[in-house]
Design a protein around this nucleic acid. Structure first.
Length: 511
DNA sequence: GCGGATCAG
DNA sequence: ATGGCTGATCCGC
């Protein structure tokens, strides 16, 4: 199920100031984020520039957003959600995915009944209305939650026929990973609805590339992710900070901006407890053209001074390359992150149960190559019988456009030119137990061996530690053990409890 | 890897 | 006239 608060910011403001009910108002600073019904009557839409809204409706009242307030309200809502699925996944401050199957079984309820109950509880507890979509996977549920907005719900039966019928007339743009650009490209081929995708597949492959092609076919079939997990379990991949300002050419002022950006990013990195092995400078020219340039500092960076000093040469170079450069935005980003969190001793030594999402190791250990379980979950495996007929052969005219949804292109040896090994290994046991740590590993020979190597080196470390346990005063980063323990105990207070900062997680396509 | 680009919220 | 900010992913080099 996907759940979506109705006009969240506006709804929360309305609780404090009911008198706004009658007047056109919207929430947002420079940009209008959410607005009430009256404002909409004046043509103001959410996602519209503030000044445009003002034009349309001069008496529009623009409220300054109060994110602390919205976060507090979001926790109220989430407390209810947790009763239905303790492992629900926040998709943003006002959206979440839940797996309601266990709840329905335990309470002997239909999904529809359970959701009706959930929505009533949210309204009761948090005094805001929510809309919900109930479907077989997250992609469908997301679409469904918009069907009966506001304050409604929509159930899409989990049957092939119902799903295909549902997608057939669904405008492509309603699907999560299809934005304005892709919508345009598709429209150029005559593809307006998800149902149209299949008929045009022979052109699609070359138009959008392999990934997007597979994505679109999955959309057509109504396939999507079926797993749901707390957002905290996703690993962050970058941290950035950028600011827009009045056009600046003055080199001195530009350095001031860079300094500010470095300070901001430094703070954020500290909050996120990580450093970046890669540092990127992003600028937007007064023409709105965007450029990025990156460097790999000799060591992972997180201190503002380092961020500034390593990015300054990039700026200098750009200043030389672009005479009379005039900027309207400048920012810094760190990627290739390494955690500075105190290493979890148990996990590090492999003494802890599987616990997914292998935490960032402290820099010296490479994250197991790009294909982990989380990644598998996100693309949710093609049913082989479908994958065959659907993939490749974009030009093959004999792939008839009949209504046959299972065009078994018999004996296609392999899907793509890609690694191929992983895809073909499906019938085999998916996991091999590591003889060292006995944790399950992907059944891939190369990676399995790499893992064993890893474990052996851990074993070495463990032996060394045990041997010299009393002697080792723990040299890492010069942090005394006592301090590290303490930091661990406190963790990041507030983060999990009132836990705002809902990780923005892209769920499909991108994700 | 790098840099541009799209997408989401 | 699209809007600022953060983050993720994909594509073509």
């Amino acid at each position: 199920m996907h759940i979506d608060c109705d006009a969240f910011y506006a709804a929360v403001e309305l609780l404090d100031r009911p008198e706004l009910e009658k007047v056109p108002f919207a929430v947002g600073g420079g940009v209008l984020t959410t607005c009430n019904y009256v404002a909409r009557l004046h043509g103001c839409r959410s996602g519209m520039a503030g000044f445009v809204a003002r034009r349309l409706c001069p008496e529009l009242i623009l409220l300054k957003p109060n994110f602390d307030k919205y976060r507090a309200k979001a926790t109220e809502v989430r407390e209810v959600l947790a009763r239905y699925d303790p492992r629900f996944e926040s998709a943003s401050i006002d959206e979440a995915y839940l797996n309601l199957t266990p709840y329905c079984e335990e309470h002997g309820l239909d999904p529809g009944e359970a959701v009706a109950r959930l929505r009533a509880e949210v309204r009761e507890a948090a005094k805001v209305t929510v809309s919900a979509g109930i479907a077989a996977n997250t992609r469908l549920a997301k679409i469904c939650s918009n069907m009966n907005k506001p304050d409604g719900q929509f159930l899409l039966p989990s049957e092939r026929s119902a799903i295909m019928a549902f997608m057939r007339d669904m405008p492509c743009r309603k699907v999560n990973g299809i934005g304005r650009v892709l919508e345009r490209e598709l429209a150029a081929l005559g593809i307006k609805t998800c149902g149209d995708i299949y008929d045009h597949r022979q052109f699609l492959y070359r138009l959008v590339g392999e990934k997007a092609y597979e994505f679109l076919l999955r959309v057509h079939l109504g396939l999507g992710r079926t797993s749901v997990q707390p957002a905290e379990e996703y690993e962050r991949k970058s941290v950035s900070s950028e600011r827009t300002f009045r056009d600046i050419s003055d080199p001195v002022q530009l350095r001031v901006k860079l300094r500010a950006s470095a300070d901001e990013l430094g703070k954020d990195l500290q909050r996120a407890e990580c450093k970046g092995r890669t540092l990127a400078l992003k600028i937007k020219l007064h023409t709105f053209e965007v450029l990025t340039r990156q460097v790999i500092p000799p060591k992972a960076v997180c201190m503002p001074d380092d961020l500034y000093n390593y990015s300054l040469p990039i700026l200098v170079k750009l200043e030389q390359e672009i005479p009379g450069i005039k900027l309207r935005l400048l920012g810094l980003r760190c990627s290739n992150l390494v955690s500075t969190k105190k290493p979890d001793t148990l996990a590090f030594f492999g003494l802890k149960p599987p616990r997914r999402a292998d935490q960032h190791n402290s820099g010296n250990v490479q994250p197991l190559a790009g294909h982990n379980q989380a990644e598998d979950g996100q693309w949710e495996q093609w049913p082989d019988e479908m994958l065959d007929g659907y993939e490749m052969e974009p030009e093959d005219p004999d792939v008839s456009t009949s209504s046959n949804l299972h065009p078994h292109a018999d004996a296609r040896r392999e899907a793509t030119a890609a690694p191929a090994e992983t895809k073909e290994a499906t019938p085999e046991p998916e996991w091999w137990d590591c003889p060292v740590c006995s944790r399950p590993q992907a059944a891939d020979e190369r990676r399995f061996n790499e893992h064993i190597d890893l474990c052996l080196s851990r074993q070495t470390i463990r032996d060394a530690v045990q041997q010299h346990a009393s002697l080792l005063s723990d040299g890492d980063a010069g942090v005394p053990e006592s301090k590290k323990q303490k930091a661990s105990a406190e963790k990041k207070r507030g983060r999990s409890a009132s836990g705002p900062d809902p990780r923005q997680k892209k769920l499909c396509f991108g994700s």
